Structure formats: C-alpha cells, structure tokens
Simulated assay, not measured.
Amino acid sequence: MKILMVSLDKGLLGRGQLGDVVARHRAYGEQPGVERLDIVVLSGRGCAPFALSPNVQTHPTNSISPWLYLTDGIRLADGLFARHNYDLVVTQDPFLTGLIGAHMKRRHASKLLVHFHGDFFDNPHWMADAVMNRFLLPFAKSVVRQADGLRAVSQGIADKLVRFGIPRNRIRVIPTPVDASKFSAVAPEAVAQFRREHGIPDGAKVLLSVGRNDPAKDYPTLFAAIAAVCRRYEGVVHLAQLGAGLPAEDIAAKIASPSARLTVSARARLPQDQLIAAYHAANVFVSSSRHESFGKVLIEANAAGVPLVATDTTGSKEIVRPGVNGYLAPIGDPEALAEKIVHLLENPDLARAMGERGQALVAERFDGATSLRAVTQFWRELTAPTP
C-alpha cells in the first residue's frame, strides 16, 4: 500500500513534538503491506522535509499564511500523487486536512479515510470555541459523507457519526496507539531531575496538566480549580503545565494564590523521556477540557500510575471509571475539580491504589500495538480490490 496522509501536527517535522508522534508514525511504516507513507504537514515557512524512516517522509507546505494551507496542501499533494499514485489518503480531521483529502479522492480516484480525533458533531462546547467553527462544520459534514472510511478514537464519537447518518460498517473505533510499557517505569533520578529543573519544592504535591494551547483545554477552569485547591488544601502545591507554551508567571498570576502555597512551572515542549518523568513526578493528573474525543494523555498518565481528575467529556468518560482509576467532574466546574483533587491529595493511599488500578486498566483496554495493527488493517480493508 502507498498511503498519503495530511496532518496539522508540526511535531511530524521532527521538532517541537510533545510525546511520541514521530515514533508512532514511524511504526505505521513498519506494518506489513505499507510500501510507503508520505505525510503532507500544513506548516508555516522555514520547515524542511523530514525522513522518519526509509519509507516514511514528511513534506511541509511552507505556507506564508495559514489562509493558504488549503491551496498549498492541494498543490503539494497533487505533486506527490503525480509521482506515487497513492492507494489511500488519510486525513487528521474532516476540516482543512479533510477538504484536501476529498479533493484528492475526486481528482485521483483514491480511497479516503478521515480520522476523528476531536469531538465536533453535536457539541455546543466545540461550537462555542470559535465563530469559525460554525462556518467549518458544514464542510466537515460534506467531507464525512464523501469518506470511504471513518476512524473514531472513541465509541462516543462513533455513536455520534451513526446518529448523523453514517453506516456503522464504514466506521472503526480505534484509540490512538499508546505504548503503555514506555510509561510504566522510570529511573528515580529522572524524576528527581524533573523536580529540580521545574523548581518543585521538597514535599510539594505535583498537579500535572499536559495539552496544547487551545480553547478546548479550558485553562481558565484549570487555573480556577488550582486556586480552589490552594484554598482547601493546607500543603504546598506545584502545578506543572506542559505543552501550552504559557509563561509560568502568567499562570501563577491568573491563579492568584499566595506564593508560599503554590509554585508553577511550564514548558512548551518536552521530549518523551522527560514527559514520562513528568508523569511519574505527578501526584494527580488534571484535565479541564471542554471537549475531547479520547484523551491520549489520560492513558499515558494512568500507565504511569497517576490517578486522574478530568471533566466528563466524551473521551474522558471512556477512560475514567469514577472511583476506580480517577474521578470525573462537570465541564466548566472548577470547584468540583478542586474537590476531587483535594480528596486525592489528602488520601495518598487511595490515590496510589487508583493509579495502580489505572495501570491495569490501560494495559487491558488500550494496548498500543493492538491499535496500531487495527489502523493498518483498516487501510488494507479500504484499499482491497472490490469483488
């Protein structure tokens, strides 16, 4: 199979990645039957093609403006098609990348697989994130109708697609592959180094947040929850935010907690080994998202033995079993988040037991190798000759 993928993830260009995106896509190229995998990355200027492996290559659009992503992506994809005549186009979402994929399907008669990594349909929280979303949604619905296959990362998203009118046999529920074994253990020195580099005081309880800077992550609710934690919890708390690129001093100012009770650190990106150390340094992992289709970071945190406190998004509800491996709180409710966080901080034995149960659940329900094989098996099904 020759696969063309269209993505917005700049981490695929080999720089600034948070997590395992490069390793995961390299592994796709290693699966049986995958002859080559080319990835068009919608990017700004100054990016270079990047070879993930001998048969996996990324190609940046180097657009002078995001407004040109669509036309630049189509032009680049057309050029690649002229050389390789792909069997299947895979898009990250049904929006910009999906429009490019639909264009390739029409022009080159390829099969089209659209991934749903977000919770877009029938979701007022997503609609409220940006005025542009109301404009984009009709295009997304058109792309979905044209797709030969749809991959949902959670059952909740698949059910929404069925309610929209997509036949269930065109949908596969395949979680994002996570190699849980990579997160299950780490050297104590790596954790100690993370604490030193992030200025975490001795004895401080660490609350960890991992996510990009996006309205969907609802950081105002997170910061309000941390402020409530500081009012309720008598010990010292450290918030480590990774991925959003927000200055630590700005976060601390928004939380507005007495400095003696709270310290804050923030990083825009971390290599995976340091991210794993961050999970193991954490006492509680916190997600304040307004909407999520899955929640890969929740899987990673649980794999590291960290209990979860998350808002009850479509994705979180499939991962968090309340009272077993963490707790859920209503979306947009910082006081409810704080209540669950404080309960875990004040009951470390309970928190430890929840983390251990989380490790077992992740290993049982979200095996990364199984998801990886399922993705490429879906590719084979879509590209198989029609009888």
Rank of each mutant, 00 (worst) to 15 (best):
A374P: 10
L8G: 15
L18N: 01
P385Q: 11
M5L: 11
R269T: 01
F120H: 13
A185L: 08
P385I: 10
L262F: 08
K205R: 15
F139C: 09
L361A: 00
F366R: 04
F135H: 11
E292P: 09
D250C: 02
A51Q: 12
D38L: 11
R231V: 03
G149D: 04
I331W: 05
L113D: 12
G199A: 07
N325F: 02
G165W: 03
V286C: 10
A82R: 15
V131R: 15
F139Q: 13
A216P: 00
S316T: 10
G295N: 08
G326S: 11
G358N: 07
L113A: 10
L70K: 15
T314C: 15
N62Y: 07
A244C: 09
A351K: 02
A282Y: 08
P348Q: 07
L298V: 04
H280C: 00
A130V: 13
S257G: 04
R36Y: 06
F164A: 12
G156W: 12
I100K: 04
E381T: 13
P271R: 11
D72T: 09
I341F: 05
N123I: 03
A266E: 04
N55W: 11
Y279P: 01
C230F: 07
S142L: 14
A353N: 10
G118C: 07
T91E: 06
Q155V: 09
S316P: 00
E381F: 13
M127K: 12
I255H: 00
H343M: 13
G332P: 06
Q377P: 04
P271E: 01
K217A: 02
D122E: 13
L372G: 02
G323M: 12
W67R: 15
